[in-house]
Write a protein that binds this DNA or RNA. Structure first.
Lengths: 182, 182
DNA sequence: ATGAGATTTCACTGATTACTGAAAGTTCAA
DNA sequence: TTGAACTTTCAGTAATCAGTGAAATCTCAT
């Protein structure tokens, strides 16, 4: 691995975490490298800096693109493909959250929707179906909420988040106003 | 596998998803089984219903307890240990979110905090460090917000979530009130 | 059309992770 | 204190997943 110490530590950490995040080591390392790189890199540069095989880089780049975590660009007069990670951390967070939603939540939601349509006979199955209903309700609620929040600007989100649990106070305030005027 | 069709489908699906969620197949299946079970189960019952080895169940149960996803209880006059999944889906969601926070976010945050304390020389490293700073800022913000939200009751959270992006309206309302009174 | 530069595919191998069965450990009643 | 009931540990094996290199494919400039 051919990197300054600070960057190397970051890249190795992301490699380790990669597996916990449903990616794999190489993917984590590649992403970390692109994230801190001052300019886009081509596949050979990544190969060289990480000390892994060219083909591994090729596969990794495809997967990172599928995650929408890296962007492909071309430089005039250069046939090679260059890759960069989007700079806006909020955008990255949203992408990540959307992709996880799509990969981890949606399949389960659709399984649950199907399961809830089945007609069942035994008490055991009825109980199971009721539990699935609770799970589905919460997941739908979270999904809807998440979609809505994703429409807000980073500024608005930052303000909302900065308020933390004090947003609950706003609800009381709203209730009071409504009561007064209603 | 020795289960009614509806339950079996649910259990198998969670087995598949288990890996995407950083668990593994068996863990997913065991959790799903306990989640829909009308009463707590002991290790032998789980072994029998899932058709896996007794030792695998034993290890799986330890891990599910480490995730705080199942609870151990004893029945009077029975030496065996019984396991159940908490019933409250909100509680489950919080537990899951907290554990993922602990396993997936915190290690990265502490790595970033360390990296940001280093003194670096080259422009490349300075750029990398700046990028790490951005990442750290967002992660701290999200972490703080999440901790705060976790204090709210499910009722409050449900109300807030039901408002969706209309919470942003509350901010405007608040601004107006402050302007008027300030 | 040709071939040099660039990228991708894929069968194989190496590494990691999950699962099992046998043995050891624990707990408790008699 | 013995042993029956129950649980855990762990070494070995099976299954899965990641990474490589050679070959195939793609893509332009000539």
């Amino acid at each position: 691995m051919n990197l300054p110490p600070l960057v190397q530590g970051f890249v190795l950490h992301f490699g380790e975490m990669g597996s916990r995040w449903g990616l794999n080591r190489t993917l984590g390392q590649m992403y970390a490298l692109l994230y801190v790189s001052p300019q886009p890199l081509n596949a050979d540069e990544i190969t060289e800096k990480l000390g892994i095989s060219r083909s591994n880089v090729s596969m990794g780049l495809r997967e990172l693109q599928a995650w929408r975590l890296v962007r492909l660009e071309h430089h005039p007069g250069d046939r090679r493909e260059y890759f960069s990670a989007p700079q806006d951390v909020w955008a990255i967070f949203r992408t990540l959250a959307e992709e996880r939603q799509r990969r981890e939540i949606e399949p389960t939601l659709s399984m649950l929707r199907d399961a809830l349509l089945e007609t069942v006979e035994t008490d055991e199955e009825k109980h199971a179906q009721a539990r699935m209903g609770e799970m589905q309700a919460l997941m739908e609620q979270l999904t809807t909420w998440f979609t809505e929040m994703n429409r807000l600007s980073p500024e608005t989100l930052t303000r909302l988040m900065a308020m933390g649990s004090r947003v609950a106070k706003l609800l009381e305030l709203k209730d009071r106003l409504r009561t007064r005027s209603g």
